[in-house]
């Protein structure tokens, strides 16, 4: 019963006018960082840093600013690796056609939905998009991604349920070359990073894409659920080992979870967070912005 009314800390109360820098404030900040799922390591590191800096600061408000900046610094500057056409830097990249994006992640994080949203984003830019229905395992996964292809005006390559996903991906790339497609999005089945055989299957999908088109896949996007806690680190590490991730999308940020764990992933693995999911509709995709993300931790 004690814990029932706990729930959120009101940060404005924390940093209200005239609030002093003291132990109580530090404890509240520690709680804020932990409950945002930043993880114990980053939290401890941040607390140490702001405690050091606090000696030169006079108000809680200033301290909050310092903390925000420290947190934003955990995200490496948006590199040239970010996804096609989303940033100015990406435009300078040699254009590969088709540009192949493979979407991976554990079960139920929002891979198919994010892929559908991305398809829409690209088709509305006038690009020709093809979706590979390479989740041949989960019940009605093919039917689900078909609806997204329909909604986004993309074409689709599908085989029967239970078919070899690597063959689906291969055929999709082949068809895309023949049909002058700009972007190929490969929907893969959710799998836990600890399942060796399923991770091998994922590698095989990647290899078969590469066999059809050297250099492909050009992006491997891991979709991470913002509700996830510390396990996200293990997910990112093992998916990265298997298929070399190039970017991360963070979904379900429309809930109350803060998704702070991406800070650890971004800073230690140097992986850019590119998109955020903020709902179930096709338009609920935004580009990740570190400063807005960090500000939201304090809401």
């Amino acid at each position: 019963a004690k814990t029932r009314k706990v729930l959120t800390t009101d940060i404005n109360e924390l940093f209200g006018p005239g609030k002093a820098i003291d132990e109580v404030l530090f404890e509240e900040l520690e709680e804020l960082l932990i409950t945002s799922d930043l993880g114990i390591d980053i939290t401890m590191e941040m607390m140490e840093r702001i405690k050091k800096k606090s000696k030169k600061l006079s108000s809680a408000e200033e301290l909050k600013q310092v903390l925000k900046e420290e947190l934003i610094d955990l995200f490496p500057n948006t590199s040239t690796d970010t996804s096609t056409g989303t940033s100015d830097t990406a435009k300078e990249k040699p254009v590969t056609k088709p540009h192949v994006i493979m979407v991976v992640g554990v079960n139920g994080t929002g891979k198919t939905t994010t892929l559908g949203k991305l398809a829409m984003k690209f088709t509305s830019q006038g690009k020709k998009v093809l979706i590979a229905a390479a989740d041949t395992f989960r019940a009605a996964a093919i039917e689900q991604v078909e609806i997204w292809a329909d909604r986004s005006n993309s074409s689709i390559v599908r085989h029967k349920a239970g078919a070899d996903p690597a063959a689906v991906a291969y055929d999709a790339v082949e068809a895309s070359i023949a049909r002058d497609i700009d972007i190929v999005l490969i929907d893969t089945a959710g799998r836990l990073h600890t399942q060796k055989n399923l991770m091998e299957e994922l590698k095989k999908i990647k290899r078969s894409v590469n066999k059809k088109m050297p250099g492909a896949p050009h992006e491997v996007l891991m979709v991470l659920d913002a509700t996830t806690g510390q396990n996200a680190i293990s997910q990112a590490t093992l998916f990265n080992q298997a298929v070399e991730l190039t970017q991360i999308a963070l979904t379900k940020l429309d809930g109350t979870a803060k998704g702070g764990i991406v800070a650890a992933i971004s800073s230690t693995m140097k992986l850019p967070i590119t998109y955020i999911g903020v709902g179930e509709k096709i338009e609920d995709l935004q580009e990740f912005d570190a400063s807005r993300f960090v500000t939201a931790l304090f809401d």
Binding site: L7, G229, A232, A257
Partner: peptide, 10 residues
Amino acid sequence: DAMTGQDAVN
């Protein structure tokens, strides 16, 4: 989901 983080309480 067993992987849920701090938000489980909410």
